[in-house]
């Protein structure tokens, strides 16, 4: 089975202080100076895939893992890490354009890659990224490939040679379904969200493995054309005020604080219900 995992390198927005969330004329918030991380949902997709591969090793099933991203050379650090963790192939499409708000172009490039370097049996990725927040890429890729897509995925494992058990959250709750390949899986709030860490020995063993750098041209992608086809345009940004009121209850003991909480804040509210 050949699995392709797509991931995006994003700025760690938790590191930005309030004062840095300044919306200027250029629209996007300045994040060039912030440390980069793997988008959290993509990180879950990568770890879930590695877990699936662990399981397949135990069951002696053949799985080939490929990791793919679009971006600049700073992503290579992360691709090297994935090689050390056991990914067989890593690919980066060289692209310096800002595609945060152009999921159509992203999906088009992915589809072109999958068609040229495939066939793949499964494509996994996070359901959305922290900077673009479009949540469209997985659906667009599935549509372009005419594959089924499952969103809100929280886990998946190989059940048979071409049968994958996929758990996802939808309006009905947690669902497990058996899916025949091929399929696109958009990983959501998975319980495992952190990628394992390669040892120094793993890193050394993978040191000679190359990252394949691919040009847009070689995939037949014309960025100007893709930008013209984008149906989304960023028009404005607004700051959302998420602050909430808080109250510190002063007391000399837990009992006293609980009593004050009940008498001053809960009693009236409860009696009015």
């Amino acid at each position: 089975m050949r699995i392709l995992v797509l991931f995006k390198i994003v700025p760690d927005l938790d590191l930005l202080q309030d004062k840095e969330w300044t919306i200027k004329n250029t629209l996007p918030v300045e994040t060039a100076y912030v440390k980069k991380i793997i988008n959290v949902y993509d990180e879950s997709a990568l770890e879930l895939t590695l877990k699936m591969a662990d399981h397949s090793i135990n069951n002696k099933q053949q799985i080939e893992l490929s990791a793919f991203t679009i971006g600049e050379p700073h992503a290579d650090l992360f691709l090297k890490k994935l090689l050390a963790l056991g990914f067989n192939n890593t690919y980066r499409v060289q692209c310096s354009a800002d595609l945060r708000f152009n999921p159509y172009a992203i999906a088009y490039i992915i589809t072109a890659f999958a068609s040229q370097y495939g066939p793949y049996d499964l494509i996994a990725m996070g359901m959305q990224s922290s900077d673009g927040d479009n949540a469209k890429t997985a659906l667009l890729v599935a549509e372009m490939l005419t594959w089924p897509c499952i969103t809100g995925v929280t886990g998946f494992e190989l059940r048979d040679l071409d049968l994958v058990a996929v758990r996802n959250i939808n309006d009905q709750g947690l669902v497990e379904q058996l899916v025949h390949e091929p399929a696109v899986l958009a990983v959501g709030n998975a319980p495992c969200s952190l990628l394992r860490v390669p040892t120094l020995r793993d890193i050394k063993s993978a040191a000679d493995q190359e990252i394949a750098i691919i040009s847009l041209q070689s995939l037949g992608c014309d960025l100007k054309k893709l930008n013209r086809q984008n149906d989304t345009e960023l028009e404005s940004l607004n700051t959302v005020n998420n602050t909430r009121a808080g109250l510190v209850i002063e007391g000399t003991s837990a009992e006293e604080k609980a009593r004050l909480l009940y008498e001053k804040h809960l009693k009236g509210w409860l009696s009015s219900r």
Partner: peptide
Amino acid sequence: VDTPYIQTWFDN
């Protein structure tokens, strides 16, 4: 190195 690269790290 441009100062903002360090400043963001230092603030955290």
